[in-house]
């Protein structure tokens, strides 16, 4: 055996553990998902399993609950993404302008991201509670207003979920933006300041253009993430009121594990995946570009 062949053999041995895991739990599931989506597959009556072609997809198209769920998910995306970008950009700019105690503040803002979503939801459910929640306590005692039904009023439920999600994830996003803020050479600002530019001009002409790639990255990843919204709503409102916050992933979960219709759930998964992957393609191209830059 030549040295080259030997090296390749060892190389494949080194690749094997990950390669097998990759095949079994990334490639194979995709194949299974594809197969399930064209099958009638009900866990509770397996003897009825058979090939149905595109019938599931036709049913999804006609399913008002699917469209309702997609609307809920879209509402979450539309609220969440801009809110996240603006909040985290603001925090990053603030952190960047700080001289002392920056690391401390940064750590504190990031801390909520360390909590599991289950705990996060418990804390916020308690805050939003109509009778004895913290927010309504403040409204009743200091503002002398009527208690606000944060989670049971259709127009308020989704924004309430978004506020919780912001608390949970703004820290992470702002760290990403901050990192790229810190990479902007100081001399750019110094030169512009000498020319008499004010803060707004500095931001508009230097900071923002240089931040564009990272903002784009944050928008993309948070959009893809927001399309996966599930425990945020299911733990806080359980999809209510009137199913207005039940997102697609929760609908998939319920279809698969409450109604036991794995085939139909797989079909919905594919449709959501197709929508998400439109955004994912951009991300992939960006990462590819990054890979090429490094190598």
């Amino acid at each position: 055996m030549t040295y080259k062949k030997q090296k390749a053999l060892v190389g494949y041995l080194f690749m094997a553990p990950y390669g097998i895991a990759f095949l079994c739990f990334l490639v194979l599931p995709l194949v299974v998902a594809g197969a399930l989506s064209v099958m009638q597959f009900d866990l509770t009556s397996k003897e009825t399993t058979h090939f149905v072609g595109t019938q599931n997809f036709v049913e999804v198209y006609k399913d008002t609950y699917f469209w309702q769920a997609l609307l809920a998910t879209s509402r979450y995306v539309i609220w969440m993404v801009p809110a996240l970008v603006i909040t985290s950009l603001g925090i990053a700019l603030g952190l960047n302008a700080m001289s002392r105690g920056r690391n401390m503040v940064r750590a504190l803002i990031f801390l909520p991201g360390m909590f599991t979503i289950a705990v996060t939801a418990i804390i916020w459910q308690w805050f939003y509670n109509l009778e004895f929640g913290f927010f309504n306590y403040v409204i009743k005692t200091f503002l002398h207003g009527q208690p606000v039904p944060w989670l049971s009023e259709k127009s308020l439920a989704m924004p309430s979920i978004v506020v919780m999600a912001l608390w949970w994830s703004a820290g992470g996003a702002s760290i990403i933006i901050l990192t790229s803020l810190q990479q902007i050479p100081k001399m750019y600002f110094e030169a512009a300041s000498l020319d008499g530019a004010n803060i707004w001009q500095l931001f508009k002409n230097i900071t923002f253009p240089l931040l564009k790639p990272v903002l784009f990255f944050v928008i993309l990843t948070s959009t893809i993430g927001a399309f996966q919204m599930f425990p945020q709503a299911s733990l806080l409102t359980n999809g209510g009121p009137e199913l207005s916050t039940r997102g697609v992933v929760q609908y998939i979960y319920e279809t698969a594990f409450n109604n036991y219709r794995l085939g139909y759930a797989a079909s919905i998964s594919w449709i959501l995946a197709a929508i998400t992957m439109l955004f994912g393609m951009f991300q992939f191209l960006m990462i590819r570009k990054g890979v090429r830059n490094v190598s």
């Binding site: 399930l36 893809i224 399309f227 797989a266 992939f284």
Partner: peptide
């Protein structure tokens, strides 16, 4: 292989829920 792996990173996690359960 690395390209395929990177490509797989953009597949949303929810798609794996049902098939992984099945497997």
């Amino acid at each position: 292989f690395l390209t395929v792996v990177i490509f797989s990173m953009m597949v949303p996690g929810q798609l794996f829920l049902v098939p992984v359960y099945f497997i």
